[in-house]
Design a protein around this nucleic acid. Structure first.
Lengths: 218, 218
DNA sequence: CGGAGTGTTCAC
DNA sequence: GTGAACACTCCG
């Protein structure tokens, strides 16, 4: 009954909404709402949905629980980006510029991406492509408050800037900003694909390891 | 290295703890914890462990991941009995006394056990032994919130009382309660053994059926 | 190792 | 006190 996937008119075609009632435990009776993309991927929260859809589809007035778009809803009334208030509001702003921001002469030429949840949990620098790509006006925005999504979603998200760093530069129109953000969106997809491939390679390697278990170790 | 079985001081003598790190997938790097009984049986979760040890060994303050007993840990802060709050917190308490509670004049004399996962999935009444056994003060406790365990483990567990039913009677000391619960624990073992045997018999019978497939059916 | 289902936290 | 968001457990 309450577990059927329903069409959701407020989302793009093909998206479904599901409601599940908790059956046991201290939170029994509570209702969880999930969404499914046309490809079948499950979404468990509004931020997760928002990350996936990108800025092309504005969820500002979308109510996750009901699945409806409410015109009266304040853009950001809730749903503040989790990092936002975490240090801008209270406590001393964290201006530490330790990783992932390389604090050298070539700061603008060699940004560093810290991939926290990667299997090997190491910090890498993509030194090759960084200098070839076009310079971005708001390069901080490439990391600030945004997260990876789509294919890997939760798996790889945890890129953030030290709190307190702000973008500066000549005044820009909203149009320009949107373009920039969309480019960020696409760039992220590329990065995630690359990381996904890396994961697969690792998995393959570990299979090889198992089939050569009797041999001498390196 | 991390796959060695270690002694676990917070458990009875002879129990071992093992940690295994996931090598690939989106949860790569995550650590799984297992325990082994003195006889070598593997345990993969706290509920499974708890079911096996019975009430004689209180795991309320036991942290499964670390293997240590944490005094500050609220008894039930996590690991609340899975069925507990359903109906007790909000909404109308479910006082329905449909099966497995027989709602007749002989309610105390003929409790009914609903064995959900049994091959034939039927409701049985143990009319013979029920009247012979000593009456239990908290007879509801024989089913409420407890589950079958050990030999069959997960296989047979799913016995529960309608929510909202509470034990009543003359005040009792904790000692008495513990004794009662321990007897429940032992009785459950007997029941499970019986059911296990029954399962084996059925399996054997079906083998016979197969070997006599060409004959006329009864 | 994945994922559904549940617990926990934090902002309000 | 409530509920959104997300971490985690547990079992297939």
């Amino acid at each position: 009954m309450e577990k059927k996937r329903m069409d959701c008119p407020s989302l793009p075609p093909g998206w479904k909404k599901e409601e599940v009632i908790r059956k046991s435990g201290i939170s029994a009776g509570k209702c969880d709402v999930y969404y499914y993309s046309p490809t079948g991927k499950k979404f468990r929260s509004k931020p997760q949905l928002s990350r996936y859809l990108g800025i092309k589809f504005d969820l500002g007035c979308f109510d996750f629980r009901t699945g409806r778009t409410v015109p009266g809803k304040l853009q950001k009334s809730k749903q503040r980006l989790r990092n936002e208030s975490l240090g801008l509001s209270k406590g001393k702003p964290d201006l530490s510029t330790a990783l992932p921001i390389r604090q050298t002469a070539s700061i603008f030429k060699q940004p560093v991406t810290k991939v926290v949840h990667h299997p090997t949990n190491k910090v890498k620098a993509d030194s090759q492509r960084a200098t070839e790509q076009p310079r971005q006006l708001f390069w901080e925005k490439r990391l600030k408050g945004l997260r990876s999504f789509d294919v890997m979603d939760e798996a790889l998200r945890t890129m953030e800037l030290p709190k307190g760093l702000q973008g500066v530069g000549p005044g820009t129109t909203d149009e320009t900003l949107l373009e920039q953000e969309e480019r960020v969106h696409l760039a992220r997809k590329s990065l995630e694909e690359a990381l996904a491939v890396d994961c697969l390679v690792r998995a393959a390697e570990s299979v090889e390891d198992m089939s050569s278990e009797g041999e001498a170790s390196p």
